[in-house]
Structures are given as C-alpha cells and as structure tokens.
Design a protein around this nucleic acid. Structure first.
Lengths: 158, 158
DNA sequence: GGCACTGTACTCGGATATTAGATGTCCGAGTTAACCCGG
DNA sequence: CCGGGTTAACTCGGACATCTAATATCCGAGTACAGTGCC
C-alpha cells in the first residue's frame, strides 16, 4: 500500500483543525517534515476524488471539501491507492485444461470468491470509519491536540 | 499483492488431488501455462514456510507437507507476500511538533489503530478458511474436478 | 484621494527523473535411477 | 543371472537480469495581492 495514504489521513485530520482557511502543501508537509512536492501530489489525488478542494495563488492551498463525517478511511485509500483490490484474480483457470472462454472466473473461481470476501470485510470496516471518528478519538485521548496543532500552524514562519 | 499468491493457492488445491506422489514445478506450471522457473520460486517459498515438502532429483518434486485442514489461506499469503501488513505505519507523528522518541506510535496513533483493526479482520477471515474448505467447495460445485485433474496429470507427456 | 492597471510573488498541477520491488531467467548442487560391467 | 559401481539425467535452490510501479523532483499555468501611476 502506498505510503501516501498515511500522510493523507493525518493531513485530513490536521485540516479539520484549521477551518475557514486554505492550508498550503508546504505548511502541511512542514508539520511532519515530509517532502513538499510529493505530499502535494497526494493532496492532488484527494482533490480529484472530491475529498479536498484546492485554490491557487497566494492565500491558496487545500481545505476539506465536505464534512468529515462523510469522509471515510476507505475514501482516502481509494483516492490514493486506486480502486483495485490487493488480490487481483487473473483468471488462471481460463488457461487450464478445461478453460471456458465464456466463463467469468472472477465470479466463479472459489479461491477468487474467498479472497474477495475477505477483502470486502476489510473495505467495509474502512468504509464504516470516518475522519470524524478518528478526530473524536484523538480529542478524547489527547484533549490538547486540536489547540496545540492550531497554534503550531499559526506560529509557523514563512 | 504478489501474483504468485494466486498460483500458490491453485497449486495447493491441485497437489491435494495428486497424493502419494511428488509433482514437479514443471508439471504444475504446465497445467495453467505459467512460467516454470517463476512458479518454482513461489513453491520454494511455500517449502520454506513448511507448507510443502520438496525432493530433488528424478521422481522429485513438491507435495503437501501437512493435511490441508491445517493450511489456511493466510498461511499462503504470508509465505508468498511476506508477513508485513499492507498499511505500514511509519510513525509519522514522531517527526511532528510534539514527537516523543520514547513513544510507540504504531500502538498509540489512532489512525494506525484503525488501519490495523481493519487489516486484522481481513487476516482473521483468511486464517479461518483452509485449503480443505476450498477443495470441499470446489468438489461440491464441480464434482468431476478432482478426477478430471488427476487424469490430466496422469496423461501429461514429458 | 480613489481607481484601474501592471507586475510580481506564490500556489497548485502535471510532466519528468530516480529508485525499489516485483517479475522473469539462468546455471549449479544434490539426488535418484538406470545402465553397464564384472563376477 | 545377479550385484555393485559409475554415469547421466532430472530436480530443486538460489544467484542473476529485466521491467513495472512507487517515490521523488522540477518547471509551467493560473491567481490574488501589492504597488504604481493616472484621473
């Protein structure tokens, strides 16, 4: 899985704490000391997926495009890592002795089914957890996180 | 995920149908028209994991090292793809403003927790399904699969 | 003083290198079985 | 005919290329603001 998924999730949490203001990729990258241009690339992907909205020019940057209650972890994974499943059935049975060109082995192959069911549960789990849930849990465990982050961004030079 | 996982699972099913005999990588590869040497590499991994046992020389080859009831899909995934999880927490928080070198962020980071829980469910699902389950389902749906496969391997030239 | 225009600095966006890992290939170590030769 | 030694073929095993995709970087398009000159 792409490393940018982790960056994107943390950045979404941070963006939630800086509302009513566009935050540049440069500032978001500085927070965790990440390569600016590469993080920018990930944020672009989130923008294309409709999770963030971007504005160019001075005072430009990124901000959340919709309420965090409607941004699931799966949304972010799909935006960054693509929609493909980890296990990709290549329909190996088609090349076998009794291979039937008309059959859809992604559906009928028992192994493909089993792998798909497992991955479906995984995705359902991620789809059921939103950034809002994450934020709530963080604020519960570390009550000063929000304020601390806000002031850090406010005091950031350049 | 490595493509070899699919090959390995199908090969284990086929090996189950050819008991009391070592089957060479060459023959297993011929069944699905796969690159022999590369499949051999995957079977090596299964052997290192203790899923298969291998013998060299003429009449050599691979065979299942233990009953298929005790070979889970997770065993195969781990053997081929490695034990690492898909989402690898890089402890990004450590580089943050309040990063604590003594803290284990893999454990404490809420995002890491959420991703880990989802993946744990995925792995539990795979751990709970064995090759025996797969074989049973295949034989139920396609009753002649076992016999058909056996005769194919028996009649294979070279 | 106010307003329009121009220029500049700053941002995202995508095109372009670089690197790591998956994919694919090859040859050597080891082993078995067959064959040959001698008894 | 039988048994032992030799040889040769066959197999796995890991070391070695190749190729795709993730990682990282750079420069251009667009935009808002500030400064400047004109009315």
């Amino acid at each position: 899985m792409n490393e940018g998924v982790e960056w994107a999730m943390h950045s979404c949490v941070n963006l939630n704490w800086i509302p009513d203001e566009a935050v540049t990729a440069k500032r978001l990258a500085a927070f965790y000391d990440l390569p600016t241009a590469y993080l920018n690339k990930q944020l672009q992907a989130l923008t294309r997926a409709g999770i963030l909205s971007s504005t160019s020019g001075p005072k430009g940057g990124f901000q959340l495009a919709r309420p965090i209650e409607r941004i699931s972890l799966l949304d972010i994974v799909v935006a960054i890592d693509g929609p493909d499943e980890a296990f990709r059935c290549t329909e190996i049975l088609r090349s076998g002795p009794n291979g039937d060109p008309k059959q859809d082995y992604v559906k009928t192959c028992v192994i493909s089914q089993a792998m798909r069911q497992a991955e479906l549960g995984y995705r359902r789990e991620l789809a059921g957890r939103t950034i809002a849930d994450i934020v709530a849990e963080v604020e519960r465990t570390y009550p000063n996180a929000a304020e601390s982050t806000r002031t850090w961004f406010a005091n950031l030079k350049s």
